[in-house]
């Protein structure tokens, strides 16, 4: 059985910045517990020395030349989709936490 609790779901939702309602937390806790019980089978499907695959097609050293291209956006384009700007910068509400 998984160790999914409402408390853990709230913690995860905090990390993921989703303001879940109580009923969402309750529902998700049950669903996640069910899902995790199924997906946990991967743990027993592999050996400690099985190599991990993070890319389906193994490539290495894929680089870009150090030159400015026409992908650069104008300020207007950069700001075009923003909910709020001051004309040159994005506006956000007060920040409580410190930078990391």
């Amino acid at each position: 059985m998984s160790d999914i609790s409402e408390e853990r779901v709230r913690h995860l939702a905090g990390l993921a910045r989703i303001d879940l309602s109580d009923s969402e937390v309750t529902a998700l806790t049950a669903e996640l517990a069910q899902i995790v019980d199924v997906v946990a089978q991967v743990t027993n499907a592999v050996e400690a020395d099985t190599p991990a695959t993070s890319h389906p097609i193994p490539l290495t050293n894929v680089y870009r030349e150090d030159v400015v291209t026409d992908d650069v956006l104008t300020q207007e384009q950069a700001l075009s989709g923003a909910p709020e700007t001051d004309g040159s910068r994005f506006v956000v509400s007060a920040i409580l936490g410190e930078e990391q």
Partner: peptide
């Protein structure tokens, strides 16, 4: 460097705000 770590926007100090970006930087 002339450009950023993962995008071809100019790596320059200062400049008008949000003028040295590509879709990647944003």
């Amino acid at each position: 460097t002339k450009t950023k770590m993962f995008s071809s926007a100019p790596n320059e100090f200062g400049g008008d705000p949000n003028t040295h970006t590509t879709p990647v930087c944003l």
